[in-house]
Design a protein around this nucleic acid. Structure first.
Length: 267
DNA sequence: CGGCGTGTTCAGAA
DNA sequence: CTTCTGAACACGCC
């Protein structure tokens, strides 16, 4: 689920509930999500400190605490951050719980593809983020245009976090479909200005909704159905995989020889 | 059992 | 050298 807008939603949850009040405890329910930190050290470092306002870069959630440490969360494909008023309501895949203020913040992740880092603010944090491109909501149009001047296929390029950070499979499909751009087209061949505009539109509406398919009208929703159809022309959508990723909702595999596959213009 | 996936990463092929 | 593909990671759901 988590792409830029989802992580932005998690950031807000944290900002609204957990900033400024003392961290009473840190409960690690599954050590499998900890990267380079022990249960003991995580707890000892955070207990008694307070979260400072969290920020986000691409799909990374960065939560500094008083005392100079930084909690970094990545949500992989199945992660989320949830607020609860007490220990009641914890779920099976809650991996780390921060007891703070009048409730608790729960880092949940079914598949544990990513996890949690505890770093020192500064060089250590920068090293982790090194190689992460500019955030998709921050990148200026001029810079975006430069990044698109590449021979690579446009879909894998946009989904590459080292190029632009925050876009995933769903968002890229939606952006390209709205822009009537073939996902396999060479990046340099597409109208960068128009694509930048589409990207911002798509991101804005998803961020406002706080989640990634904000409405069922998105391309994603239509592909769920056995014979999803194009919202523009009604043509039945076909799909193939680009850069090793199938469009979301794809149930049947059919080769893409028809230009009208997910994301391609339909006159 | 087999296939799939809104995440990243890596080896090896084109 | 660059670009792309497929597998791997871990887990639940068809």
């Amino acid at each position: 689920m988590p792409e830029l807008p989802d992580v932005e939603g998690f950031r807000r949850i944290m900002a609204d509930h957990a900033v400024g009040t003392r961290i009473a405890d840190v409960v690690t329910l599954d050590t499998g999500v900890l990267h380079g930190v022990s249960v003991r050290r995580l707890r000892a470092t955070l207990r008694g400190e307070r979260f400072e306002p969290p920020r986000r870069v691409g799909k990374w959630l960065i939560a500094p605490v008083t005392g100079g440490a930084v909690v970094v969360l990545h949500f992989g494909m199945t992660g989320s951050l949830d607020w609860g008023d007490g220990p009641d309501g914890r779920q099976r895949h809650d991996r780390v719980v921060f007891v703070v203020g009048d409730g608790e913040l729960r880092y949940r992740d079914q598949r544990k593809l990513q996890g949690l880092w505890l770093l020192r603010a500064g060089a250590q944090l920068e090293r982790l983020l090194d190689g992460t491109g500019p955030d998709a909501l921050e990148v200026p149009r001029s810079r975006f245009t430069e990044l698109l001047a590449a021979r690579r296929q446009v879909k894998p390029l946009l989904a590459d976090q080292s190029v632009v950070a925050g876009l995933g499979n769903l968002l890229v499909d939606e952006i390209l479909w709205r822009g009537k751009v073939n996902p396999r087209a060479p990046a340099a061949s597409v109208d960068a200005d128009a694509l930048h505009r589409q990207m911002r539109r798509v991101l804005r509406s998803a961020v406002r909704a706080g989640r990634v398919p904000p409405r069922p009208s998105w391309l994603t929703g239509r592909r769920d159905e056995p014979s999803g159809s194009c919202a523009r022309c009604g043509t039945t959508l076909s799909h193939g995989r680009v850069g090793g990723r199938a469009p979301c909702g794809a149930r049947t595999a059919s080769p893409v020889d028809d230009p009208r596959e997910s994301g391609k213009p339909v006159p």
